[in-house]
Design a protein around this nucleic acid. Structure first.
Lengths: 218, 218
DNA sequence: GGGCTAAGTAACTAGTCAGTTACTTGTGGA
DNA sequence: TCCACAAGTAACTGACTAGTTACTTAGCCC
């Protein structure tokens, strides 16, 4: 307790807080890369949004590309670790899958930056992500969740026997991702704001129905 | 016949072919915007890819943004008109829907530029598309196709009664779009090339199963 | 207190970029 | 043949960009 207070007192008197500056840059970069894409984001703007000196951006992250990779790792780590906390083991296969699909949809609402980050990374052919062993290691456990749900569902006769975990993982992401990634064009085309609450609720129900409807035995 | 030959002879002797230059610029722009996004594409590169003088790009299209909109209109026109030629009326609701889903998936393979163009346009919040009445007018007929299929399927008791045409339109696009838009990150994550023929065939079968499985009556 | 290093400030730099300017050439119609 | 205008060439321009340089300040440890 005394050491926490000593640290807090020290931090409030200090003119320098490297970890805070570093985090502010990371968050500002996440926002700027999400808004503008990797190519459109400007390091001056990131520094400004972070209320930091541009020099510090290079100091902490090296260059623009490496900053983008740091942002990407942060984003992936967030969603993948949240998925692992869903505790699907304790649910029926159907409820587990329902919870996972709903979680994914809700996550895209909560973390809208994720989609534009992935779009940018794919525009650059995953060249950043290839350099990150951390990101690569994040996915096996999540696919394992789906594999387990499918296995249980098939064993109980409530899921179709030909469901493939990776295809289901991709489809689970698909039905929400596309909606959000194209929300501007779709809203314009259909002349209604697809990011409004009622629209989101309708879409959420639909995506759950799509995945659960597909999984019904044939 | 004589007039066709006269035109061909005239064209082959001419040093100027404005329509050809214009088309070359449009195609080069489509490629460059698809590869690099709107922000990353360079007008010098587009001109070079078109084997045209940069001045002509401004001459024909005004500026970079307007060129992007021309490309977007071209891309939408292509997919939307192809959809209308599917002749789904003559098929059972199930076969019609199967054909549409397969068509959409195959279209993304055939016209890979479409996805990156839409990603760019959404990154820019559909600000180009809003200026195009032509694009806005292209969608009602296609949604009408799905509405008809669903209506027939529900009447025949082979589709679920709660299926919504717009949601199905979006889901039809979702299950393929996400796969292709994220093919680089997904391939890296799963350590396999998801653009290979076998992978594409597996995914194609899956997306048809997802939509048709979902549509089964409850 | 002093020295050293990390953290930080501010200005600079060379190259890039969309768009413009100045001029030339080709073509069609009178 | 001549003229006018569209199509075309090539160079230029001012602003922007990621990254660098030169220097200062803060904080920690001896």
């Amino acid at each position: 307790m005394a050491s926490v207070n000593a640290q807090a007192a020290k931090a409030s008197k200090s003119k320098r807080d490297p970890e805070s500056v570093r985090q502010r840059i990371l968050q500002a970069a996440l926002a700027e890369f999400s808004d503008k894409g990797l190519g459109g984001a400007r390091v001056d703007v990131i520094a400004q949004r972070a209320d930091a000196n541009k020099r510090m951006l290079y100091h902490y992250f090296g260059n623009k590309d490496d900053l983008f990779l740091a942002v990407l790792e942060h984003a992936y780590r967030d969603i993948r670790s949240a998925e692992l906390e869903l505790n699907l083991d304790n649910l029926s296969p159907e409820d587990g899958m329902r919870k996972l699909v709903a979680f994914t949809f809700d996550y895209f609402i909560k973390a809208p930056y994720f989609i534009n980050l992935l779009n940018s990374e794919n525009l650059h052919r995953a060249r950043h992500l290839r350099r990150s062993q951390a990101i690569l290691d994040m996915h096996a456990p999540v696919v394992g969740l789906i594999t387990d749900l499918l296995r249980r569902g098939i064993a109980e006769g409530v899921f179709r026997a030909d469901a493939d975990p990776i295809q289901v993982f991709i489809t689970n992401a698909s039905v929400g991702y596309f909606y959000f990634s194209n929300v501007h064009t779709l809203s314009t085309i259909f002349g209604r704001d697809l990011s409004e609450k009622d629209e989101l609720e309708a879409r959420r129900r639909h995506v759950i129905d799509v995945v659960l409807g597909y999984l019904r035995p044939t």
